[in-house]
């Protein structure tokens, strides 16, 4: 049996009296791409933030490479991933090249020239012109910002990639382009990926496995092919809302 690279057991979170999710058990194998889906307000983004250590869960444990995430091991995990936020979360006050190479800005390993070169290479990878290097985030469209967000996430060639609603707010054509780009990036880096989304077309492109988060619980978990054929009412409703 293959040991999962990332695993959560009994993860729970509530905000004051509002329970977000409880007893979340998910696992993902090395090199696989998992999509966590669910309707709006189901706590998908909170779950992702708990996994990456931005929000502290109330209970439950997270294991990375078989060890509990804490101390130095947590630091190792923090350095192992890149994340693309819902609104890209680019730093307004920095030009694009500094956004992409931010991780190396204060390290002595890369000079400013090397960081600029790195940013240019990543821009090539996400299909943006090098003339964007000196622009500021506010000068880019939503789709371009997402691409820069992806470029920043892959700047360190991370072992793990996380995407929070990568196609939210984009038109269908741009959403399709971004989904294809994500798939390509995951394959090229051989990364393990978790994507939060409710965009079915995007999930079909990106994911190997799907987990459905519904009313604070993982209601269904399995490969994408089984997901499409599932008889689960909530999945059916998710796939074709009018047919239920």
């Amino acid at each position: 049996m293959i040991n999962p690279i990332l695993q959560t057991t009994g993860l729970s979170k509530r905000f004051i009296t509002n329970e977000i999710f409880e007893g979340i058990d998910i696992s993902i194998n090395d090199g696989k791409s998992l999509a966590i889906i669910g309707g709006s307000g189901q706590g998908k983004s909170v779950l992702l933030k708990c996994i990456v250590g931005l929000i502290k869960p109330d209970s439950g444990e997270i294991f990375y490479e078989g060890s509990l995430l804490r101390g130095k091991h947590k630091q190792k995990f923090m350095n192992s991933f890149g994340i693309v936020f819902q609104g890209a979360a680019l730093f307004d006050s920095l030009p694009i090249w500094e956004n992409i190479s931010f991780k190396f800005k204060y390290s002595k390993s890369h000079s400013a020239k090397e960081r600029r070169q790195l940013a240019a290479e990543k821009l090539d990878l996400v299909g943006l012109p090098r003339s964007s290097l000196d622009l500021y985030p506010s000068e880019l469209s939503g789709g371009m910002q997402k691409r820069v967000g992806i470029a920043r996430a892959i700047a360190t060639k991370p072992k793990n990639l996380f995407f929070d609603e990568p196609t939210a707010g984009l038109d269908p054509i741009m959403a399709n382009t971004i989904s294809t780009l994500i798939r390509e990036v995951i394959q090229e880096l051989g990364s393990t990926a978790i994507t939060i989304s409710h965009d079915l077309n995007s999930i079909r492109k990106i994911a190997d496995d799907v987990a459905l988060l519904h009313k604070g619980r993982i209601e269904w978990n399995g490969p994408i092919k089984a997901f499409e054929k599932s008889t689960n009412t909530n999945i059916k409703e998710f796939i074709s809302p009018d047919s239920t």
């Binding site: 933030k49 990456v52 250590g53 931005l54 923090m78 350095n79 991933f81 890149g82 994340i83 936020f85 819902q86 609104g87 979360a89 680019l90 730093f91 307004d92 931010f102 991780k103 204060y106 920043r152």
Partner: peptide, 15 residues
């Protein structure tokens, strides 16, 4: 920066 998740982005970039 907080409401646009830039603070979260900083944290994930080990800053």
């Amino acid at each position: 920066m907080k409401v646009t998740e830039q603070l979260d982005a900083l944290t994930t970039l080990s800053t």
